[in-house]
Design a protein around this nucleic acid. Structure first.
Lengths: 218, 218
DNA sequence: CAGCATCCGCTTTGATACTG
DNA sequence: CAGTATCAAAGCGGATGCTG
């Protein structure tokens, strides 16, 4: 069932476990938000076949990368969570995302996107004036609105809305991501269909400067 | 021909390029020793089918991860080399190797091994007394003898022999690797069939201490 | 509905043989 | 040496069906 490389090599052994198609993307989903139900995973992995998801989850559980839990009474279903061993894959996905970031430019326009994926590239944003009162930016770009708020020197990215955000951004995923990462400025983003309302200073406070590498990063 | 995830996500885009079976192991080979001929790659990738190797090399070239060169007159053949873009994958293989290292313990005894793979886990060894004259350890464990020498605060790992090495080690790959990485001591290694000749101090100088994590690391 | 399992057509893989 | 050609077997993707 499993096709091993049969090599005494750490990288090959790692790929024996997480090298199968979809496997690392399942781990990605659990890295963004834990724990998740089967159908939540399915939604976060557009294109996966249901039998493959079931199969991969079984294998990941066998290898102690994820764990299956009985969810608390309110929902009463099983949920999936990363084990410490699974959490240890974060540097792998980090390195992969770093390397893959430049490829996002050549992404087809109808590529799938999920709002919660914003958490990966935006996690590296820093709050430029942590002493000031926190700001909240509401982002509309795909299946659900997300809140980007300054917290603890960085930003948090979570689903939700607030009554009076400091700024509200609506646009396609590429434009939103490139804007936040400083690859384009607000005018350029507007030229590509982005709608911005509120305080530009709220955005400037967290946007990655043009001084750093301006590639969208996962 | 290529099956893309079609997701606007840096990690997914990276896997579109290097996620296919064997692809990252090809990159591993070129990371250890550049440049390589087709047959050298084949030897370093035990188990790969020749059509797959040809196919992967073509795709990697299309994605500018590797480049094909006409070799200089003496050999007069084409060789493969990593581009800067390919070199940028080093953190990915590093993270994968780090994560996969603990899995080496459960590696089947007849797993394939190539001597030059020693370069990956041993690269992290440090020279504990860089001021002293360099030492050379000759290692016999698979297809060809390797030389581990102290150099510039660390060690170099290259194929070859010398007339009078400070130490000579012969043993199976797991025992050799675990010994170098400090997971086992010399007595334990000898109990598992390792033959050591020469100055134990030469080994002690580069062996990772028990203080650090004693997992074989790629 | 959540959580799969089964079936089916297609693609990819792996092993071997063959060629310029 | 550096691949291409061929082919059986396994894996993948999509649809549908079953069970609590």
């Amino acid at each position: 069932m499993v096709r091993s490389y049969e090599q005494y090599c750490a990288a090959a052994k790692a790929l024996d476990v997480v090298g199968d198609r979809w496997t690392l993307l399942i781990v990605r989903e659990l890295m963004i938000r834990q724990p998740l139900r089967y159908t939540d995973l399915q939604f976060g992995l557009p294109g996966i076949a249901t039998n493959l998801l079931a199969d991969r989850l079984r294998k990941l559980e066998e290898h102690h990368v994820i764990a299956r839990e009985a969810a608390p009474p309110p929902v009463a279903t099983t949920v999936f969570r990363l084990t410490p061993r699974g959490e240890a894959l974060r540097p792998v996905l980090g390195a992969l995302g770093e390397w893959g970031a430049p490829l996002l430019r050549e992404c087809s326009d109808d590529a799938a996107f999920r709002s919660h994926w914003l958490a990966l590239p935006l996690r590296r944003l820093r709050d430029r004036s942590p002493a000031d009162p926190p700001v909240t930016i509401e982002v509309h770009t795909a299946d659900q609105p997300m809140l980007v708020r300054t917290v603890d020197g960085g930003v948090s990215v979570e689903p939700g809305t607030v009554p009076r955000p400091d700024a509200t951004i609506s646009g396609s995923p590429p434009v939103v991501v490139e804007l936040f990462l400083g690859a384009i400025d607000l005018d350029a983003a507007r030229a590509r269909g982005l709608v911005f309302e509120g305080e530009p200073s709220a955005l400037a406070r967290v946007v990655a400067g043009h001084d750093r590498v301006a590639d969208p990063v996962n």
